[in-house]
Design a protein around this nucleic acid. Sequence first.
DNA 1: GACACCATACCGACTAGTTGGTATTGTATC
DNA 2: GATACAATACCAACTAGTCGGTATGGTGTC
Lengths: 219, 219
Amino acid sequence: MVLPTSTRTPPEGSTRTRLLDAAVRLVRAKGLNATTVDDLCAAAGVSKGAFFHHFDSKERLAVAVADHWSQTTGAVFASAGYHDKADPLDRVLGYIDLRADLIRGTAAEFSCLAGTMTQEAFESSPAVRDACAASIFGHAATLEADLSAAIAANPPAVTVNAASLARHTQAVLQGAFILAKAADDPAVVLESIEHLRQYVQLLFSPAIHPPVPKAKKRP
Amino acid sequence: MVLPTSTRTPPEGSTRTRLLDAAVRLVRAKGLNATTVDDLCAAAGVSKGAFFHHFDSKERLAVAVADHWSQTTGAVFASAGYHDKADPLDRVLGYIDLRADLIRGTAAEFSCLAGTMTQEAFESSPAVRDACAASIFGHAATLEADLSAAIAANPPAVTVNAASLARHTQAVLQGAFILAKAADDPAVVLESIEHLRQYVQLLFSPAIHPPVPKAKKRP
DNA sequence: GACACCATACCGACTAGTTGGTATTGTATC
DNA sequence: GATACAATACCAACTAGTCGGTATGGTGTC
């Protein structure tokens, strides 16, 4: 491939980007199956020929959208202010507070594209499912270092695994999004985020020294 | 209407019931949009005419399936053994342990029908969304009495609202199901259930007396 | 019991519209 | 003219829902 002269990067509002951005909007609102190729073309102001010029299939677009989602959301969190805090626990709590701050508008605006697509793709399209998994678990992984540091700095009385707790934060958020969609009310998300915050605080609370009895084996 | 003689209740494996049971299976596996009316008829061994004899539309079926789901799962939890425990906290922990016990097989087998349908219906079909909401929040409500009693018996240092905590348990489960679908691995559900259990234990742990600082208002 | 009557359950071919995807053609840039 | 990109027309498969008609069985009357 030759990139000779000046403008070889596609113009910023390129067809491909417009389609991906439209897909994020529509899929978050309607889901993947209910979003047709024609919907996407109309929303992006693009012809069907252009669509299939850039993406071999709707499934390929879905994978690309999941990757696009990973990148754009990754950038938001990477540049967020909570990384600057000195105490690793404050960084974790800062992340949680940021998640709460991002709950604005409708469910379609604050919910997670990857979680939405997972439900529809997990049996019909391994490629899409894997892309969603990469987005969710990749994001969870960005919390691990801070959690590990917090555990090392202030070991909780109960055994806590950083990776597991990082995944749990994502489970809480994904589930809260579902409840918000069902109730048609964003408040339930804030509620669950508050419970998550309280859980993390309790885990690292110095008040806990007489160790809580380990969760008993179930019969 | 006259119901004179003997058999007026439809036969137990009735067409309607077969369709509802088939719908539970297919929708949990493929989602609502990806499940066609023909799929349902084939799975239930029923003709298309019979389908539309019993349900005016696919949407009506979806509502009926959500109600059916509420009833069948409601019966399972209503008859479970954890209600017999004397200590309300033990009943709550017993519920959580039961949820863990029910994680068997594939995601399509243990995940929640209402949560799955919510994602696809919340913008396109208020009727289905409301039926899903009734299922999820109705189930959450069955936990409230035990949580209230536990709070009354052993007030946590941090303020806890029973209804809010009950909803949070459902958020954790719903989110864990999504992560399990993404990872194609039921283990992540058990992980999050364990975190939920630990959160409840910590909340009610007598070790917490120097009150944890109240969650700060976000800027 | 024989009869007419009627309601419910059911069948499966059909339709109108939608879907993802293709074929063809046009155009701008090198 | 070669290459990348894009617009239009088009197709075969599929979809939810319809429709005319059948099967069964119960009810009331004689």
